[in-house]
């Protein structure tokens, strides 16, 4: 139990009366990297957003790092400061330089002095080979570069869990590679990650566990290699054929 960083129990959620998550159970141990796959509309992204309450769960419970996220007394800002969230569309702040995108959250949320925040931000940029962009503005960068900055921004807060919502889906095939390389590097650092993606490469090579979702439920989970090559359910098989095809068409 102690080793469990994230625990989701019977999570239901949706939008405008439409139920998207229909009772999801999920666990993630410290240091574990879990990939979530599923057809669009299966509720993957909603699941991620519920974990930090960017979407309000309807029912069910979520525990993160020993604290109930769904509890009434929870300090949401603390929960969110403990997690890093990477969005499909990067969502950098366009009116701030790249380095400011990283240092401002440290100053504002972690109350770090500016010089210290900037030093840390610069170190993080250097770690990902992004230091040459420090004084550029996000919209002056390519999509791939922006997403790498977004990953660096999530990591500079030193989160206990990194949540990534289709970090490569908005990118052209030739830009996906550089983001994937960054993701592999983050995975190597041993960080706990919950990542929604269709990148089979990443799932096979970097993930500890693969979770397949469909229609608001977890349909199958297990060792990525086994699941991808010998799926047990028909649903999983059909889905894997579909993404294998779409992966081929982009490659």
């Amino acid at each position: 139990m102690n080793n469990l960083l994230l625990k989701v129990e019977g999570l239901k959620a949706g939008y405008d009366g439409l139920e998207v998550l229909r009772g999801v159970d999920l666990g993630l141990s410290r240091g574990e990297k879990v990939v979530v796959m599923g057809p669009s509309g299966s509720g993957k992204s909603t699941l991620l957003k519920c974990i930090v309450r960017l979407v309000e769960p309807w029912s069910g419970r979520i525990f993160l790092d020993g604290e109930e996220v769904t509890g009434r007394e929870v300090d949401l800002r603390k929960v969110r400061a403990k997690t890093g969230f990477v969005f499909q569309q990067y969502n950098l702040f366009p009116h701030m330089t790249v380095i400011k995108n990283l240092s401002l959250p440290l100053e504002v949320v972690k109350r770090m002095p500016r010089s210290e925040a900037e030093r840390r931000a610069m170190n993080m940029l250097k770690a990902f080979g992004l230091e040459e962009f420090a004084d550029k503005y996000p919209l002056q960068l390519s999509g791939g570069q922006q997403q790498r900055v977004a990953i660096a921004r999530a990591l500079v807060m030193d989160p206990v869990l990194l949540l990534l919502d289709e970090p490569t889906s908005a990118l052209d095939p030739e830009l996906r590679r550089e983001v994937l390389d960054t993701l592999f590097e983050v995975a190597r650092q041993g960080r706990s990650m919950l990542i929604v993606t269709h990148e089979l490469d990443f799932a096979e090579a970097a993930a500890d566990r693969l979770v397949l979702m469909d229609d608001g439920l977890v349909v199958e989970e297990g060792d990525p290699w086994e699941l991808l090559h010998t799926p047990k359910s028909d649903r999983a098989r059909r889905f894997l054929v579909k993404i294998a095809r779409s992966a081929q068409s982009v490659a």
Binding site: L54, R80, T83, F87, N91, L92, F93, V109, R153, M157
Partner: peptide, 13 residues
């Protein structure tokens, strides 16, 4: 909306 989400996800009030 995504700008609000990004700020909230970082822990901004």
């Amino acid at each position: 909306e995504t700008q609000f989400l990004a700020a909230e996800s970082l822990g901004f009030s």
